[in-house]
Design a protein around this nucleic acid. Structure first.
Lengths: 213, 213
DNA sequence: CGAATTGTTGAATAGCGTCAATCAAGGTGG
DNA sequence: CCACCTTGATTGACGCTATTCAACAATTCG
């Protein structure tokens, strides 16, 4: 059902993106932490592939509240919109490298847009469950699981995401997020290291998973 | 960006769906309230177009908790999955009529699957905002707005959805939903009629919208 | 009629948000 | 080098809000 829906996309050459650094010779863009990739209201001409680092996608509510829809890590695609105008913002979380692709008939490689859209849809639906299944601890546990899934095999990894980003992603406050992390430490489920306490060492993966259910 | 992604789908003929009534001569299926269209774990071979009535899509958590991902009304498409196995359940909310379509090379009409996927993605993202921007009253107000948008022009319409369904959709309890509806009545924003109090008469649409912001 | 379903309301509780203070790490300027 | 400020994370006290548990009304169905 998902085959044969690819259309031809090609890498964008020599094009500058939203104030980001110029493309390198392999057409990828290097970004420093918090650099903007695109903003709400811009024309949506390109989709992006994350080569390294991480990207956050967010919206601003009428009240000026930031809400992070999703994070994208290495190997994932983002930037596919319903219309041709951006409805959200994309920023690098940390040192990040992305490759832009845009519609072109002289395509280098076909990209399965439907597959990307459906993957994003599945992610969005999963997040709905996480958020609705309230209890701050469950949400934070689910978030740590999501981060851990990006590092299969490793029991220690760097989340690279601030408490504030986590809060805006999970619909909580920074204080609540911090309290949940202390609870997870008290339960001997994980350790936090690094000066910003963003390096997670999983002590009891099973207990973490059972928290999210 | 959304053009040229259609693939050929055709109406499914003479096929029975998950215990639902047999297809009529125009290939559409008539369902009574609460009838199942498909269930989790089944093969996902078809997508559906709602001709009349409404459909609810839900999942069951490990704890047996029901969570309604979305409602689909007349003219909308549902049933498109990431893989080829259903990850959720589809049921008729009330008397409903849907038309199944399945992949076929001898197609009757091309269907833009990417457009459907992106529409669903946009819906899911919007719902994330509604749920996260907590405050029970805001969520209920947003829900009523969503229902009202399906009846443009009308200031009175039948939601056809139980308090329990609304609760499972918004991540609240039935009691909280009921209390929010009383608040909306007290604020003279709407009236509720019908024996099950599901018929909404909008008194102050602007006030309702301003609540959701 | 009694039983079941759906919706509403009340009282008590638990949990998250708000406000505020504190700590650690790092930067800057004298 | 030290004093000062800033940033990000943590912790405590308090209030508000949604949940929980319970009772009750209205309607339908057997």
């Amino acid at each position: 059902m998902l085959q044969n829906h690819a259309i031809n996309y090609t890498t964008a050459r020599g094009h500058r993106y939203g104030g980001a650094a110029a493309t390198t010779k392999d057409q990828s863009i290097r970004l420093k932490a918090d650099e903007t990739i695109y903003s709400e209201g811009e024309h949506a001409l390109t989709i992006y592939h994350v080569e390294a680092g991480a990207v956050r996608i967010y919206r601003l509510t009428a009240a000026g509240q930031r809400y992070i829809l999703s994070f994208y890590g290495k190997g994932e695609w983002f930037g596919l919109e319903t219309g041709d105008i951006r409805t959200d913002f994309a920023e690098a979380v940390c040192e990040t490298c992305v490759t832009p692709f845009r519609a072109n008939h002289d395509a280098v490689a076909p990209i399965d847009l439907l597959h990307i859209a459906l993957t994003n849809l599945a992610k969005a639906q999963h997040k709905q469950l996480v958020i609705t299944e309230q209890s701050a601890l469950k949400r934070v546990a689910a978030f740590v699981c999501e981060m851990a899934d990006r590092h299969p095999g490793d029991c220690e990894f760097d989340m690279m995401i601030s408490r504030s980003d986590i809060a805006d992603y999970l619909g909580l406050t920074v204080e609540t997020v911090a309290r949940c992390f202390t609870k997870l430490r008290e339960k001997r489920i994980l350790c936090l290291n690094g000066k910003l306490q963003r390096i997670v060492r999983l002590l009891d993966r099973d207990a973490l998973i059972s928290l999210t259910i």
